[in-house]
Structures are given as structure tokens and as C-alpha cells.
Design a protein around this nucleic acid. Structure first.
Lengths: 162, 162
DNA sequence: GCCGAATAATACAAACACATCCGATTAGGA
DNA sequence: TCCTAATCGGATGTGTTTGTATTATTCGGC
């Protein structure tokens, strides 16, 4: 569901979103705090910077910070920047005509995909932070399917493992 | 959403499911009909055979056929055989303790994943064949989210592209 | 019962993407 | 001017998707 790269990116962004006014955070700090290979995280952050999701600053006291408010960064934007959005499934048995008729198999997976995309479009970094309950903006009605079992954890950023 | 291999496998199985009593179908025929590289399809079919989803017969008039009735093959079984089921996401920030507490990010993706798994468990090859409407067994409530736009196409197997 | 054609089964390898690491370069602060 | 940290390019290992070739079965005809 979540590719490694995407997971790393989202975790870093959530970290940065905790208080957006906090200035720049260095790659190394993020990497150790989030338990992510530093070199790779660097590349991911660069990608996010190219797509204007984070801003970078070189030199001393440099690092990365969010380029927008957490409310303005949808998961959709992140996956798009990383090019890990699921593709619109077309039935490969129909590719010839413009007749966009999906076979039963692909129609179902298309529905799942659309639901997933709705979820990505309806959820922002801010939603992930608040987290007391599922956000009203989540169209996937996930909470109905499965009420969250675990209690929330506010000081999330401090709970990082060894 | 659907990996290439999984898509190939499901398409081949749906093909075979059209009439399960029809005897054996050769890899080459499946490959040309479904527009799938034959060599690779052979490997996939072997995998499915090892997992008892299809039966194989060598030699003249040999090939592959379903090992069970279409109603008894869930998408879940197929993905499991191909080892492409999504893994239960655990929050990587918590891996140390047995305290299975997922952070907001991973909790949401876990919910999406569970929904996807329910869909896979609730859908069989037979459901894909009938296809007049979403099957009652589909717990993902996908139809509510998105009523299927396209009309059904019964003679699916004959509609294969050039 | 034996031979040869048909077909799955298996092995090997090339091309590509993903995840990871490393070293050299560039820019900003003190 | 130095130190620091991002930036950039390449090298490595693994997994996926595909192609080619060889082997092992099974069937049909003689």
C-alpha cells in the first residue's frame, strides 16, 4: 500500500509539520529521529523541494522546512511529487478503442483505486497531526469500516524509538 | 494498485473461469488472447498451479484449467499465491515495543489496507464474471462510493482486442 | 510397445526500477 | 576565510518483468 519511499517522505513531512514555525531541520536529525537511512532521505527531501512541498537552506543552521501550512499539503500532493500515485486502471482488453469500457475485473479495481485517491485528496498533513479521530474530510469512510483501536498519542514526535 | 503480475494472473484466471468444464487451455492461447507475454505467463501459471489454483497437463492437448469452481477462488487467494498481498502496516516509530500503537499516518493507511483486504476476500472469480452489479459479498461498499458507470459485457472472452 | 510431436517445467540471463550508499561540489553563515 | 549542510552524480544490491533455451512429460500414430 505504501511504498518505502512514500512512507519515508510522509513521515518526514509529518515530523516537519509538528510546528511549521520551528525553522529548518537537518536531514541527519530527521533520519535518526525517524529511523530512515540518511542518504536516501536526502534524495527524497530534494525531490519534495523540487516540487515546492519543502524549502531547503544550505549551510549552517540550514535544513528543510515545510513550504506550506500542514493544512495545505494533501497526501495526494506528496504521492504525486514522488510519482507513486496509482495509475487510472484501464482494462487492457479494451485498449484499442476509445470505448472506455472496463471489464468486471478492472472496473472493481478502478473503484478501489478511486476510493484510495479520494482518501489521498481528502487528507492533509494537518489531519495526521490532530488524529484525535478520523477527519471529516476523509471521504473513504474508513472509520465506519474499522473504528480505530488505539488511543491517540499527542507527543508523537518524542516517542521515536531507539 | 494492481501489480503487473497480479493483473496477468487474474486475467488468465477470469479467462479460464468462463466455462470451467472446457478442458485445458494452452499458455500460448491465453497469452495471445489476453495480450500477455507468453513466457512470463507460463511462470505465473506454474505458480498458480503450485498453489492449487489451476491444474496443468503436459503433452498433447495439455494446458491449464481451474482447479476449483470460480465461486471458490477469491481474489485474496490469488494475491496470496503471488505474494502480492499488502503487508499489515505497523508504525515504524513503534517497532521497539510490543505496544502495537500506530501513529496517525499509519493508522489511516492500515485502515485503507484492511478495506482492500476485505474487498479481496469478498470477491471471487465468479463475481467478476457475472458483473451485472457489485456482488453482495463485497464488504468494501465500493458501489456506494462509486456506482459503476459502464454497462456489462457478457461475452467478455470474445471481446479481446487485436 | 516405440517414436515423434506437442506442451508444460525449469534454468539462465538481460533490462529496468527501487532502495541504498558514497564521494565531490556548491552555497550560506560565522 | 572556514565550516557546515544541501546538491548532484554515480555505484551497488535487490526485485520485477521479460526473453531464450533446455529438459521432462504426455499423447497419438505406427
Amino acid at each position: 500500500m505504501l511504498t518505502q519511499t512514500t512512507d519515508y517522505a510522509l513521515r518526514a513531512l509529518v515530523y516537519l509539520a509538528h510546528d511549521p514555525e520551528d525553522g529548518y531541520h537537518q536531514t541527519r536529525d530527521l533520519a535518526t529521529a525517524l529511523n530512515i537511512p540518511g542518504n536516501y532521505l536526502g534524495k527524497i527531501l530534494q525531490l519534495l523541494a523540487h516540487h515546492k512541498l519543502v524549502e531547503s537552506q544550505r549551510g549552517m543552521h540550514g535544513g528543510f522546512r515545510l513550504a506550506r501550512l500542514p493544512e495545505q499539503v494533501r497526501l495526494y500532493d506528496v504521492l504525486k511529487a514522488l510519482d507513486t500515485l496509482p495509475t487510472d486502471p484501464e482494462c487492457p482488453l479494451m485498449t484499442g478503442g476509445r470505448q472506455m469500457e472496463l471489464c468486471g475485473l478492472h472496473r472493481r479495481f478502478a473503484a478501489m483505486t478511486r476510493q484510495y485517491l479520494d482518501f489521498l485528496r481528502g487528507t492533509t498533513l494537518h489531519d495526521l497531526l490532530v488524529d484525535h479521530s478520523m477527519p471529516a474530510t476523509c471521504p473513504g469512510r474508513i472509520p465506519a469500516t474499522d473504528p480505530l483501536p488505539c488511543p491517540d498519542h499527542a507527543g508523537h514526535r518524542l516517542v521515536v524509538l531507539t
